[in-house]
Simulated scan of single mutants.
Amino acid sequence: MKTTRILLTILAAAALTACNRPVKPRFEQLTLDTLLNHPLGTCQVEYRFASIANADKSEALRIIEQSNTNYFFHLEDFEGPAEKGMEESLAQLAKELRIGDPDYASVHDMEYDTSTESEGYVIDSLLCYSIYRSDYMGGAHSNYSTEYHLYSIASGFEYTAGDFFGEEKMEALGQLIRQKLYEKYNVSDDEGLSEQGFFPGTFFVTDNFKITPDGAVFIYNPYEIACYATGAVKVEISRKELEAL
């Protein structure tokens, strides 16, 4: 009888743990390939949105899916499914390109393009979501960027660097990132970074980071801390280095 009671207690505890375990996201890709005609020419649009197919299984996943929809499609205060977000994004792009505007005539024949794709993965109780953008809308060169978003799959909360690593560690983390840049670009000080195209006076600890099994990766997009020619700046910090902060 005693053994039975113990077994029932263990089973009850296991059931409670299972009930409280956060739901892991299951991704499916929502895609779009379309060509928009506008007064200046054409614009090729490509979307590859990693949607959380089981977002209805938990409030946390619903919150995350809504946040990702707004980030991916460059929407503000939008509430609705990703499919509607895609439609809203295309409508905004058409407005920017002045499609259908009879008063906007041009003899130009420009070929524009915009491409956005995303992916997500779970590590422990965290969801790391990445968005990659590339577009050409005229000018001397194309533009590109990478966005990282880190969430708790238990609550849907999105972490900043200060939230995740601790505000009290931000100064030390900034110094570590700066030292990593010195090593990566084979310089010894800020003057050396300046010669490499950096703007040391504008340096900051970015919230644009992701967590990996080996540590963390911080990324600075073109123009954030360096000129366009320097490209995207990626800084990898090991788990051991983070623990030592």
Score class of each variant (00 low, 15 high):
Ile177Lys: 10
Lys234Arg: 13
Val122Arg: 13
Thr34Arg: 15
Leu8Lys: 14
Lys95Met: 12
Ala226Leu: 14
Glu241Ser: 12
Leu127His: 11
Gly100Asn: 05
Ile153His: 12
Ala53Gly: 06
Tyr159His: 06
Ile177Arg: 07
Asn70Trp: 02
Ala50Gly: 09
Thr114Gly: 13
Glu96Gly: 07
Gly138Asn: 07
Asp33Trp: 01
Phe198Met: 03
Cys227Thr: 10
Tyr182Ala: 06
Tyr104Gly: 00
Glu59Pro: 09
Tyr185His: 02
Glu83Ile: 06
Asn221His: 06
Thr4Met: 12
Lys57Ala: 01
Ala232Met: 04
Glu76Arg: 15
Ile153Asn: 12
Glu117Phe: 13
Pro102Thr: 10
Tyr185Asn: 08
Leu173Thr: 10
Tyr148Glu: 13
Tyr144Gly: 10
Asn70Glu: 11
Thr17Ile: 07
Gly139Thr: 08
Asp33Lys: 03
Gly139Leu: 07
Gly156Asp: 09
Glu183Leu: 10
Thr3Arg: 10
Gly174Ile: 04
Asp109Arg: 13
Arg178Glu: 07
Arg5Leu: 15
Leu35Val: 10
Ile211Phe: 05
Arg98Cys: 00
Ala53Lys: 15
Ser130Leu: 08
Lys234Val: 09
Asp103Gln: 13
Ala18Met: 01
Thr212Trp: 07
Glu195Thr: 02
Thr116Asn: 06
Ala55Gly: 12
Gly215Lys: 09
Leu127Asn: 12
Lys234Phe: 01
Ala15Phe: 08
Ala216Asn: 00
Ala13Ser: 11
Val233Glu: 05
Phe73Ser: 03
Gly41Glu: 07
Ser155Val: 04
Ala161Asn: 14
Thr114Lys: 15
Ala216Trp: 09
Leu30Pro: 02
Pro81Asp: 09
Arg5Trp: 10
Ala12Lys: 04
Leu173Arg: 13
Pro39Met: 05
Cys19Glu: 13
Ile237His: 12
Leu176Tyr: 11
Asp207Tyr: 12
Pro200Cys: 07
Ser188Ala: 12
Cys43Ala: 15
Glu183Asp: 14
Tyr136Glu: 06
Ala82Asp: 04
Lys2Pro: 01
Asp109Gln: 09
Met170Ala: 08
Ala94Tyr: 13
Val23Lys: 02
Tyr129Pro: 02
